[in-house]
Amino acid sequence: MAKLTLSDLKKLRDQKTAEMNPRDTANKTAQVIVGMGTCGIAAGAKGTFDAFIAALGEKKLDSVVVRQTGCMGLCHSEPTVEVVAPDMPAVIYGKVDAATARTIVEQHILGKQLVGDHIIDKPSTDILRS
């Protein structure tokens, strides 16, 4: 792979914008939020984060937003990921490894079906501030 400079990156962006997948407009408001506290990192959240980027890239879901947050108080179930997709309830998934990340992209974001065996619900009450 040739070394990319910042100006190469800008050209690549212009090219990608021109090739935007029309199916992707429905996902403009979809967000994936990966818990990246010490607990998440220890459980492999960076691999999870990377797997989401790769899976979204493969499916050409260029508009889905991927963000990070700190500990959600669910250290027993890390890596944890909140997924907010149009027409779907906001869900926190637990024990999301790279393969599960791929399943979430295919099944939840594209297929509009919850990934039942990884649903945790919402952040633990002791971490929520009033």
Binding site: L4, D50, I53, A54, L56, G57, S63
Partner: peptide, 12 residues
Amino acid sequence: HTGGALSMMNEF
């Protein structure tokens, strides 16, 4: 923060 930007940053 979008999937597209993240993929390109990864390549960079």
